[in-house]
Design a protein around this nucleic acid. Structure first.
Lengths: 251, 251
DNA sequence: TCCAAAACAAAACCTAGGTTAAGGTCTGGC
DNA sequence: GCCAGACCTTAACCTAGGTTTTGTTTTGGA
């Protein structure tokens, strides 16, 4: 008897976006892949490279980032298990950003040629991938706003809220909290702040009774309050995408 | 005799990304649309709406933005004639941001259902659309970096460089310059600064002999210098995407 | 189980960019 | 061809967040 495919999470995730027919499902599960165990802080893709694989996170966390000329790092997104990073890099041919692990991780590397092949043949799967990257894109837009127009406390609170909802959707929360996979320096790189100031902000959030955070273990004591402080509204996560088909509504 | 279709720019743009076969071409040109003339500062899409149309800009400029709780606006992207804004909003069902004109504009509204239909039937066209949104996405990522980790002068210079290259690709430049479609307040909203500070920065760029700018007419006196100040590298624009097919090269 | 390196914390001080305000100059609608 | 409102410019002042530094706590690898 064959155990559950390592690609099962992908099917699960994509099924939320669009109806996958049995053929699509099968095609996805039939994708070849190479399993890889990676240490923390390891590069999965480097800017400028031509990545040959797409990378599904099976366990652990990853992030994408760019570095400015004078060495400042900006984190652009954070990725949870079950997510397929780097569809974009692969499809555009040359990577315009870095992908790196945040923690030790297991990943499945799918050759990009195979993926493209599958996409050509299975429109259902292609549609799901498409929606997946569109949601990514929506999150980038929200990050532009977060980093461009919100003050420090709001930015950090917003990020913590986003992660809460995404962790929840991925089944990675403990009661009212989760294991925060970011150091304060990384939080700073994600919010466009300095580590010192992130530390101040976290102190503030603790003092307001909104969160407790020690040893990376985050507990959100007052989610509504934190969302309020973080000017957070979950629309942009598109967690309940309506299948965007043009079906007439029938009884 | 039928004059050139209004959708021709779309074919032209998408041809750059991927090889369009004659059927794809025809299918795109056969898309139904409604022409619309819009004044400046008019909303094309509002956050929260379910847009029924995708919007191709025929002339004029548009931008996407979000507004924070306390009324600050962050511009997320700027769009030139020939660009198809809002593929994302339409495909995700509910708009997560606003789209608005920057200047008076002519647009062609294509019903999203028709677009989806076409996408289902013509993989070549679907691929082009897909790449189009991937490039959008890449630009968002660069904007996160710009706004998150660069200082004011660098941000503004970077934006001016981006627009230069994109205007050039769209054939909208005059000798070493272009008609800047943004007010200083809008530049501020795009860079996460205040109008006053944008004014200071522009003064600085002028004093360095990098640009001249009056009455919206921008001339870039030293593009290399401006790119240098702006920490600008054009990779992220993916202006020369290699067709990402996995086809073996044949004679 | 120990040790070095990473991460967290916090205080003192500083600066890039924000705020406010006031005047000048376009511009497009009547 | 006039006028109100939008836009640009500049100056004086202020503050959110950056920088530097020093110390403490965790962590994970040998």
């Amino acid at each position: 008897m064959i155990s559950e495919s390592v690609l099962e999470p992908l099917v699960r995730r994509w099924s939320k976006f669009t109806e996958l027919r049995e053929v699509d499902r099968k095609a996805i599960l039939a994708l070849p892949y190479r399993l890889k165990e990676v240490g923390r802080d390891q590069h999965l893709v480097r800017e400028g490279q031509e990545p040959q694989n797409c990378c599904l996170i099976l366990s652990g966390f990853a992030f994408r980032h760019k570095v400015t000329r004078d060495g400042a790092r900006q984190i652009i997104s954070i990725h949870l298990p079950g997510e397929f990073i780097d569809l974009q890099n692969s499809l555009l041919g040359v990577a315009d950003h870095n992908v790196q692990t945040l923690t030790r991780a297991e990943v499945a590397l799918v050759p990009r040629t195979e993926l493209q092949d599958m996409m050509e043949k299975h429109r259902g799967a292609a549609r799901a991938m498409w929606i997946d990257t569109l949601i990514d894109s929506s999150i980038f837009r929200e990050w532009v706003v977060n980093v461009g127009r919100r003050d420090a406390q709001t930015r950090v609170a917003h990020l913590l809220c986003e992660l809460m909802l995404r962790m929840e959707a991925a089944g990675l929360t403990r009661e009212h909290g989760y294991e925060l996979p970011l150091t304060q320096a990384q939080l700073a790189d994600a919010t466009g702040l300095t580590p010192v100031h992130v530390n101040r902000v976290l102190k503030g959030l603790r003092e307001k009774g909104l969160i407790s955070l020690e040893a990376r273990s985050l507990r959100i004591l007052d989610l509504e309050g934190l969302q309020d402080v973080g000017d957070f509204s979950e629309l942009y996560l598109h967690h309940q995408v309506q299948p965007p088909q043009s079906r007439p509504v029938t009884a």
